[in-house]
Amino acid sequence: MQTFTPNRVAIVTGGSGGIGRIVAERLASDGLAVAVHYAGNKDDAQEVVDTITATGGNAMLVRGDVADEADMASAFAAIEETFGGVDVVVHTAGRMMLAPLIDFDLTQLDALLRTNIRGTFVVDQLAARKVRNGGAIINFSSSVVKIALPSYSAYAATKGAVDAVSLILARELRGRDVTVNAVAPGPTATPLFLNGKSEETVNNLSNMAPLQRLGTPADIAEAVSFLAGPARWVNGQTVYVNGGVI
C-alpha cells in the first residue's frame, strides 16, 4: 500500500452521502488528506475519492459499519497505515426514519438507535483514542431537536443523544488539545431529506428560515471546515447551521 505523509488527515464517515460528500471535498480543498468512509455505497464513495485526487488532493476509501467496533477499528488502522495518523473525525453517517411516535415501528427504532447512537459511541471512542493533538471531533446532530417537527420523535431523540455525547466527551478530553463539537443542520437539500416530501412540504420547510431557502451541503461543509481548522476556542458546542430557523 502506498503511504503518504500529509500535514493533516481527516476521516469523514458517510462520505458518500449528500452532506458527507461535500464535507470530504471541502476538507480536501482546505489541504487535508481525506479518508472517505462508506458502508454500502462503494461506487459513490469512489467517485468522491476520484474527484479529490483529480484536483491534486490525497484521498482513500475506508469501509465499515459505524456501529461495529471491529469494522471501524480496521478503518482507522488503514488510515494510520496510509496517512500516518488522524487529526479530524467528522461523523456524518446516520439514518433517518420518520413516523408519528404512536405508530413508530420498534424494530425500526432499534435500527435507528444502533446506527445513530451506538455508531456515534463507536466512532467517538476511536476518535478519542486516535486523534492527534490539535485535532477535532465533529459529530452530526440536527436542528430538529429544537424545531420539534411532528414525525421526527425517534430521529430527534437520537440526535439529542449526540448533543449530550459531544459535550461530555469535550469535557472528558480535558488536558488534550482536541475539540469536540456537533453540527446541527436545518432543512438541507439532500436526497435523504427530500425523499418522499411533496413540493408543498419542501416549500414550507424552505420558508421556515428568514433567508427563505433550504440549506445546501456546501453551507454545512463551511461550518465543518471552521470547526476542523481555525475554531480552536469553540468546544463542547452544538452549532446550529440552519439559516436562522431557530
Rank of each mutant, 00 (worst) to 15 (best):
L126F: 04
F4E: 12
R171A: 11
K42H: 13
A10T: 07
M96F: 11
N195P: 06
G20Q: 09
A35R: 01
V131K: 07
I220Q: 01
A73T: 14
I168K: 15
T51E: 14
D177K: 11
S74T: 12
A161C: 10
A28K: 02
Q125S: 14
G17V: 07
T82D: 08
L126R: 00
V12Q: 00
A161D: 03
I117V: 15
E47V: 12
Q212V: 06
S198P: 11
A182D: 00
S74F: 00
V178Y: 06
I52F: 06
K197Q: 14
V12W: 03
L227P: 02
A54D: 15
T55I: 11
T190N: 11
V66W: 00
L109H: 09
M208C: 01
L214A: 08
G243W: 01
T188K: 06
P210G: 09
L205K: 00
N204F: 10
A35K: 02
N58M: 14
N139W: 05
G57L: 01
G243S: 03
S74P: 01
N181T: 10
I137D: 05
Y152I: 00
S143G: 15
D163K: 03
E25K: 15
V48A: 10
I138H: 01
A39T: 13
A35Q: 03
V36L: 02
T13V: 01
I79C: 08
I79M: 14
V66I: 15
A24Y: 00
A45P: 04
T190L: 11
G236Q: 08
I102E: 15
A127F: 02
V180K: 01
F104V: 09
L106I: 14
A157V: 08
I117N: 05
Q125T: 12
F121Y: 14
F104T: 07
A24K: 04
T51H: 15
I52Q: 00
P185Y: 05
D71S: 13
N58E: 15
L205A: 02
P210M: 06
D50T: 11
T179F: 05
I52V: 12
A127W: 00
A77E: 15
T53M: 11
V62T: 15
S153D: 10
A189L: 10
Y155M: 09
R26E: 13
G236Y: 08
E69F: 03
W233N: 11
E47T: 13
A77G: 12
G56T: 06
F76M: 08
G119P: 03
S16H: 09
G15I: 09
P217A: 05
N203S: 15
A221K: 08
A127Y: 07
D110C: 03
G94K: 07
A28L: 04
S198C: 11
P217T: 05
Q2Y: 12
T13E: 00
D87R: 04
A157T: 14
A209K: 09
